[in-house]
Amino acid sequence: MSRTTLDLWVGVFVALGFAALVFLAMKVGGSSELSGASTYAVTAPFDNVGGLKPRAPVKSAGVVVGRVGDIHFDSRNFRAIVRIDLGEHYKFPRDTSASILTSGLLGEQYIGLDPGADTETLKDGDVLEITQSAVVLEKLIGQFMFNKAAETPSRP
């Protein structure tokens, strides 16, 4: 085989390989917009994080604006401290509240941010004071049954 045909085939091969990589990067891997961009971190204490995992999405108005950084236990207040990495270009008021929500019935858990009305915006290292814990199904059912039992009038 002559040198030029060989070079041509290798060129085609390498071009195909990179085309496949670009396809995987563009068409298949989509949610990488936050993994490279610069972020700022705020923390939020929760009474109960339920099944929240690191890298879970943080959404506001349904749009992904950040990711959960890490989750650890604060042994002084017995609460879970969640670090939230928000995209640099998303600004939120200081009194924004965070709640742990579930997408769908069996879906993954994510943090929803509800913006407040403060004029100052969140900075790196701020703490979200207003939080709402994850709904624990067992507690919900227990509460429901307790209320039901209290409602029914006792028969003589």
Binding site: A25, K27, V28, G29, G30, S31, S32, S35, G36
Partner: peptide, 8 residues
């Protein structure tokens, strides 16, 4: 697919 596949 795009929502859950991360490039890095």
């Amino acid at each position: 697919m795009r929502a859950s596949v991360d490039f890095r």
